[in-house]
């Protein structure tokens, strides 16, 4: 059984259909890249998997570990192991990063019927992971993402991923707004989390990110569907030819 099964998914935003029957299957241990031009529906897919309000699913289904994901509230999806690394992580003034991390981790553990982490264990774990990602302690005391640079915000997403240990990570345009150095640090953090129990879906417009996070499978999306799937060489091919041919194919 695949970890994530998206079957013939149709999604509307207000009156406009964005996904027109998208099918995707991701197994544990695999890294899938989803590429495509702007407006092809990549981010919509990531939002619908995470449960963002404002999208209407008019057809199809999403199964996660065999369960109907669309029936679950966003927090339940998180507790079950779905993690969306946001393209634009929000700033939350007044909520210290450390408080946020502890509240979120304990909420997930509670939902799974597990005990809360003890504070010393938690602090030790956070400090360890933060150090490996080059996140200074001082940042953890600040409001969530408040005053963080683009690179710091993305590293904060990876930090959460490492803490929560989700079984499905969706990285939505992780490379947007990052220079090469910042991208390398974030990608290294992601690569450390690759594991046979975990799948990753890397959504990106550019091939560049895939030099650092090398995918097992590459999908090309156009106009709300997956129009081609292949190995990692497909990404290189796209880099050479562009998306124009797929726009025609889907039309």
């Amino acid at each position: 059984m695949a970890l994530l099964e998206v079957k013939n998914l149709q999604v509307r935003v207000e009156e406009r259909e964005i996904l027109h029957g998208l099918t995707l299957s991701v197994n544990a241990g695999e890294v899938h890249a989803i590429m495509g031009p702007n407006g092809s529906g990549k981010s919509t897919l990531s939002h619908v998997i995470a449960g963002k309000p404002g999208y209407e699913v008019t057809g199809g289904e999403i199964l996660f570990k065999g369960e109907d994901l669309l029936e679950m509230a966003p927090d339940m999806r998180a507790a079950k192991g779905v993690f969306l690394a946001f393209q634009y992580p929000v700033e939350i003034p007044g909520v210290a990063t450390m408080t946020f991390l502890r509240t979120a981790l304990n909420a997930q553990r509670k939902a799974r019927g597990e005990g809360e982490f003890s504070t010393p264990d938690f602090l030790k774990k956070v400090r360890e992971v933060a150090a490996s990602l080059g996140i200074p302690q001082e940042m953890l005391r600040r409001g969530v993402n408040v005053g963080f640079s683009g690179g710091e915000k993305k590293r904060n997403e990876v930090l959460q991923m490492a803490l929560f240990q989700p079984s499905l990570c969706i990285l939505d345009e992780m490379d947007s707004g990052l220079d090469i150095d910042a991208l390398r640090v974030a990608a290294d953090g992601v690569n450390k989390l690759r594991s046979p129990d975990r799948a990753m879906v890397v959504i990106t417009h550019y091939q560049r990110l895939l030099d650092y996070i090398v995918p097992d499978v590459v999908h090309v999306m156009s106009k709300g569907r997956v129009v081609k799937s292949g190995g990692k060489e497909l990404a290189l091919e796209l880099e050479a030819t562009g998306y124009a041919q797929y726009a025609d194919a889907a039309a």
């Binding site: 309000p53 509230a73 007044g94 909420a107």
Partner: peptide, 25 residues
């Protein structure tokens, strides 16, 4: 702010807990 609420819920906080955290802030 709906976008803040969704971010917190995507990290595992229930609707009420997410609201509480934002209200406290």
């Amino acid at each position: 702010d709906e976008s803040l609420l969704f971010y917190l819920r995507a990290r595992g906080l229930s609707e009420k807990d997410a609201q509480s955290l934002l209200i406290q802030a």
